[in-house]
Design a protein around this nucleic acid. Structure first.
Lengths: 257, 257
DNA sequence: TTTTTGTATTATGAATGCAAAATTCGCCCC
DNA sequence: GGGGCGAATTTTGCATTCATAATACAAAAA
């Protein structure tokens, strides 16, 4: 995971022939589909770059405040500066990156105040989602949440924190998605990316972890019953605890390097 | 307003000398300031382009679904494709523009469902803002809102709808800003851009207009008293009416060309 | 007449080149 | 040894060029 994966099969774009290497690698979709339905489809490079950089930022491999040197990244990814710069601009709009005119871009520093503000907004979004999901979720949605819940329990039982976090995220996102409001989903997802970075630094205590799992049990129960009032309250409390945990890790107001 | 304003003094960048034309024209700030305080500051071209395009999209000069032809826009703005493409990518992240791989970009079509979803999210954001603003707003903030309110009244009295809209927007934004949560402000502002486009098509009836002004009177009163509960209710009702008005204009579910 | 296929044109995707701004580094001076 | 100053280097901003996909169009076949 820490290794640098080139987006292009041959690193270091050669003069005037780099374009010919497109479409040879694993970015193509539909390998498992029958030939008739297979869509030959190439994602634009800037999208690949965005996903790559977003991952590295969220997972903390690109640390807050770190500079994004265009030349270095180009070499690592085996692309030219144009798609890289487009990707950086988009990440800046998402808030994961900060543009310093004439001085490039840095990974947005993690400020406790900013995370707190973000979580406050996410709170009301979750509350709205709770209301909508009780009204709009299909039975299939609920089944999926339950399945994810058990996956999460499995990781918790094994003490696999990373796996737990992954399914925890998936559950929350699935609940938001099942609300049936795509704007809500996008907004939440975008804000969430910024918070996730902090999460990777917060060391969860076993007590807090166990408590979080219990809270999820209750959330699932309220969801299945489509008890909107109760669900909203549980989600709010759950987030409240998360805020406390993250804030404790970030240590009140200080910027994180 | 309909005329095309070049960002660069000379349209049609000449070969190899275009770079030398930077910094000569009206994009520089501070022409009216004393020399000592004048900040020689150039905004990056992509920012100028973003603002320009966002304005044209929000004001409906670039209609929903319209294609953004790079060559044409480059000629209109007197810039090269690189900063233009960066700007388009950023607008895509903001949701005002849609990228069609290998086929360029179009202004995001206005769909009633999407606007409804957006307004639902904005509703909970306003509600949060109402709560925060009662706790955090300074007296200066409140004074500014009141001043904007009277400006708005003046435009209403003159029957100047465009001016009314402008100050209406400013009031809502000021209330959000005064909440003291920058993340909330940004999120709201971004969502708002998408809705404003619809607003320019909705023809407000005189009755609805008068009612909206009365609602603003009440909102201001609750705000000055820092009555959070009442303010939240009033904002919610105000938005509810706005939803009805916008939805009526968009005509239930149909996409707008 | 309609459909299809080959070709010319146009537009987008990506890479490269060039100039200005910023940073680094060596130097001199204190 | 430390701190300013200026040249050299690096890095970014933007323009341009090259490559490829999409589209329009016309001719040929059904």
């Amino acid at each position: 995971m820490g290794s640098i994966e080139n987006l292009r099969p041959d690193a270091g774009p050669s003069k005037r022939t780099a374009g010919a290497t497109r479409g040879a690698a694993g970015t193509l979709t539909g390998a498992a589909l029958p030939a008739a339905e297979r869509r030959i489809e190439r994602r634009p490079l800037h999208e690949e770059v965005i996903d790559h950089l977003r991952d590295r930022i969220v997972h903390g491999q690109l640390t807050p405040g770190a500079r994004l040197n265009e030349r270095v990244l180009c070499e690592q990814l085996g692309i030219s500066r144009t798609p890289l710069r487009e990707a950086i601009k988009m990440l800046a709009t998402e808030g994961l990156v900060e543009l310093l005119p004439n001085r490039g871009a840095i990974v947005t520093p993690l400020k406790a105040a900013n995370i707190a503000d973000t979580l406050a907004v996410m709170g009301v979004l979750e509350s709205l989602a709770g209301e909508l999901v009780c009204a709009n979720a299909t039975e299939a949605d609920l089944a999926e949440v339950r399945a994810l819940h058990f996956d999460m329990l499995a990781h918790h039982a094994r003490g696999d924190l990373a796996g737990y976090f992954r399914y925890n995220q998936l559950i929350h996102l699935k609940i938001i998605e099942a609300s049936g409001n795509p704007v809500l989903t996008n907004t939440y997802r975008q804000l969430n990316a910024n918070v996730r970075r902090a999460r990777y630094m917060a060391n969860l205590s076993q007590e807090r972890w166990d408590a979080a799992v219990r809270e999820h049990e209750e959330i699932l129960a309220a969801l299945v019953l489509r008890d909107a009032v109760r669900l909203k309250r549980l989600l709010a409390e759950h987030l409240e605890h998360k805020v406390a945990s993250v804030m404790a890790a970030l240590g009140g107001g200080a910027a994180l390097a």
